[in-house]
Every structure is written in structure tokens, then in C-alpha cells.
């Protein structure tokens, strides 16, 4: 096989499959028939009926779609990558991070900065840990690489604030010690939303 086939750049002009479209009416009488059949088809009234039915559903059958956002919130998927959380050990309440520095190393936008030192027991402790959320692209690599499941993505997506620094210190991300019993374990990357069952519905093909 030669190369001619591949050198032909004019790819747009071959291999079109013509659909068998209905033929437009030619003479006046068939045009008139087409107009008449289109005019008496009840399609327009189907449209009216559908909108009225939906209004009835919304008003009297409780099928209103709107979520009144600041007042009610939809459950968020565990896969969602929002502001990070720093988790604690459940037994001792100590933070899980061992200061290995892998997250800092892997962060592709270079926004984690941390420092460690020896504490009085000659154990490694995290002395500085911040994430610059102006740079973070929420890729999730830091959470994936962490050997201790210490840094995970939390569900805090409402991150409007006076300054981004309000989210980014170690203490801000760390689970508050008195909320330790509420600490959520990371579900893993394949986890499904808690309300996934409710969201299953038939594909709306027919009106």
C-alpha cells in the first residue's frame, strides 16, 4: 500500500453518507398539503399541556426543583475536592501528619509550604504548614500521596472570605479537638454520593 491514501489531505470531501431526507414538496398542491398537515398537528397543544402538567407537578405534587441554596444544601460527593482537611488520630487526638514532606514535594503548583523540627522528645513535629489557596488547583495529589491519610479534601466549598489565609493555616485545616468524634474518614476516590440512590432516574426520552 502506497502512501497516496495518507497524503490526500482533502479528507472532507469523501465518504459522506447521504441521509434519506424527505423530499421537499415540488408543486403547489403538495406544498399546500404539507402546510395543512403541519397546521393541524396538535404538537403546539402538546407543548401547552406539558408546561401545564409541570406547573401542576411543581405546585401541588411537591416536585419543585429549586434548592434554596443558602438555606438548604445538597449533599456533596465524597469525591469532591474542596478545601483540605487535616485529620487527627482517633486514639490520641494527635494530628496524623508525620511531616514526611511528600505532599509538599508532589504539589504541582508548589503551594504547600511546610517546615519541621525536633520537639523536646526528639520526635519530628510540624512547625509550619500552610497551603496557598491562591495557587492550589485542587488536583488532589497531596491527598493521594499522603501515607498517613493525614491530608484529605474536605467538603468546605464555601470559601468566600476576606482573605484566603483564613483557610490555609495548619490549625484552620486541622479537625478541632472537641469535634474529633465528628471527623469524617476519607471515603476513597471511587466513593459515591450519599444520596446517589435518590438521583437514579430513567433517561427522559419520551415526553
Amino acid at each position: 500500500m502506497g502512501l497516496e491514501k495518507f497524503k490526500d489531505r482533502n479528507v472532507g470531501t469523501q465518504n459522506y453518507i447521504k441521509l434519506d431526507l424527505t423530499h421537499p414538496p415540488k408543486d403547489g398542491w403538495s406544498k399546500f398539503k404539507q402546510v395543512l398537515s403541519r397546521a393541524v398537528q396538535p404538537e403546539l397543544f402538546v407543548g401547552l399541556w406539558v408546561t401545564l402538567r409541570e406547573m401542576n407537578n411543581a405546585l401541588f405534587r411537591g416536585k419543585m426543583h429549586t434548592t434554596q441554596y443558602p438555606l438548604e444544601k445538597l449533599p456533596i460527593s465524597p469525591r469532591y475536592r474542596a478545601i483540605h482537611d487535616m485529620l487527627r488520630l482517633l486514639e490520641s487526638g494527635h494530628y496524623r501528619c508525620i511531616g514526611c514532606g511528600l505532599c509538599e514535594k508532589i504539589c504541582i503548583s508548589n503551594c504547600i509550604s511546610m517546615d519541621t523540627r525536633y520537639d523536646e522528645n526528639q520526635r519530628k513535629e510540624v512547625s509550619e504548614y500552610t497551603i496557598n489557596f491562591g495557587r492550589c488547583i485542587f488536583c488532589g495529589y497531596c491527598a493521594e500521596v499522603c501515607p498517613e491519610l493525614a491530608i484529605v479534601h474536605g467538603g468546605r466549598y464555601e470559601n468566600a472570605s476576606e482573605q484566603r489565609a483564613s483557610f490555609s493555616l495548619f490549625e484552620d485545616m486541622l479537625t478541632p479537638i472537641d469535634n474529633l468524634n465528628l471527623q469524617q474518614e476519607y471515603q476513597g476516590f471511587g466513593a459515591i454520593s450519599p444520596n446517589a440512590d435518590d438521583n437514579i432516574k430513567k433517561t427522559p426520552l419520551a415526553y
Partner: peptide
Amino acid sequence: KVLAFMQRRLGPQ
């Protein structure tokens, strides 16, 4: 309001 109801929204609220 009416358009919202027909689209199953709430409209001005």
C-alpha cells in the same frame, strides 16, 4: 412566577 412554576422553579422568593 408563572414561568418559574412551569419550569418547576420557585421564582422571586
